[in-house]
């Protein structure tokens, strides 16, 4: 065993472990410049003002934006819960089909993800608008006139409506998040459930567990790692989005992402404040992920598409 490498080494052909590691050095250098330095810059900008002086004013002024923080966290939370409630049963149902059907069903979930998410969100604009497809449908089936008639009955001061307000609401933003990120919930959960050994389930059944108990005591705990990566994969983009809120609320529902975007590109150009908000958002992301990792201790489920 020891002879062989020596032979090759005599020809100068073998690299020491240290030399083989050197293949990673260019990339380590790259990471230092393009990953570490940028994040350090965020911290530097967050704690300085335009005159390059140290300050914590950027954070002190943050209380003005408590509403934006609260709204962002709340809407992202709601979207994550909805994704979980919709995604889990669907993932379970898909995992129970035969392999060929399963392949097709998974492909159909991934297909929309390859269409630019701006276009997918744009499609919802034409559905939710005041003169959009849904409102026209409600009008056609008489729902709007029904509501008007009932409203006039209930109170005399009722002003009739000609549409339901769907777009430019928090609900529309949550819908956009769910629509865009639902696959991120379904795919990791499905991939974990599929791997559960069918004998484990059979064993549970042989030991007298009914369907409900099998799910609660066997399938659910074993699929937890998928649920956890699903939750982080939905929550992180949802809490940081600015496109969905821009398109589906025309700026009426301001989120953290919008606030950051404004500080870097908009009229309210203030990268120092923007950096401070980014730093807090990063903190939220790290916090959320470490809480999630606590739940899913052990198994590392890096579900990368």
């Amino acid at each position: 065993m020891n002879e062989a490498p020596t032979l090759a080494r005599d020809r100068g052909g073998v690299l020491s472990r240290w030399q083989r590691q050197a293949f990673a050095w260019p990339y380590m250098f790259w990471m230092a410049i393009f990953v570490v330095v940028p994040i350090a810059l965020i911290a530097v900008y967050a704690f300085t003002n335009a005159q390059h002086q140290f300050t914590i004013d950027n954070f002190a002024g943050m209380t003005d934006y408590a509403g934006v923080f609260g709204r962002s966290l709340w809407l992202a939370f709601v979207a994550t819960v909805v994704c979980l409630l919709l995604g889990y049963p669907v993932a379970l149902a898909i995992s129970r089909t035969d392999p060929k059907t399963q392949r097709i069903l998974l492909m159909l979930i991934m297909l929309p993800m390859w269409i630019n998410f701006l276009l997918r969100t744009y499609a919802w604009m034409s559905i939710l608008e005041n003169t959009g497809l849904l409102n026209r449908l409600f009008n056609a089936i008489g729902l709007i006139s029904l509501v008007n008639r009932v409203g006039a009955h209930v109170s005399a001061g009722y002003t009739p409506i000609d549409h339901f307000q769907l777009i430019n609401t928090g609900g529309a933003v949550v819908l956009g998040m769910v629509y865009n990120y639902l696959p991120f919930m379904i795919l990791p959960i499905e991939s974990v459930i599929v791997k559960i050994d069918p004998f484990v389930i059979e064993a549970a059944q042989d030991l007298g567990a009914d369907g409900h108990t099998v799910f609660r005591k066997v399938i659910l705990p074993l699929s937890l790692s998928g649920v956890i990566s699903g939750i982080t994969m939905v929550f992180v983009p949802a809490v940081s989005t600015f496109v969905i809120s821009k398109l589906l609320s025309s700026g009426t529902v301001m989120l953290l992402g919008d606030l950051i975007e404004m500080q870097f590109t908009g009229a309210a150009y203030n990268p120092h404040l923007g950096a401070a908000i980014s730093l807090i958002m990063m903190f939220i992301v790290v916090l959320c992920m470490s809480i999630m990792n606590k739940f899913g201790e052990g198994e590392e489920q890096a579900v990368v598409m």
Binding site: P38, L41, V236, M281, V285
Partner: peptide, 8 residues
């Protein structure tokens, strides 16, 4: 989050 990578 993409926005943080982008901004940084």
């Amino acid at each position: 989050a993409d926005i943080i990578t982008g901004v940084s």
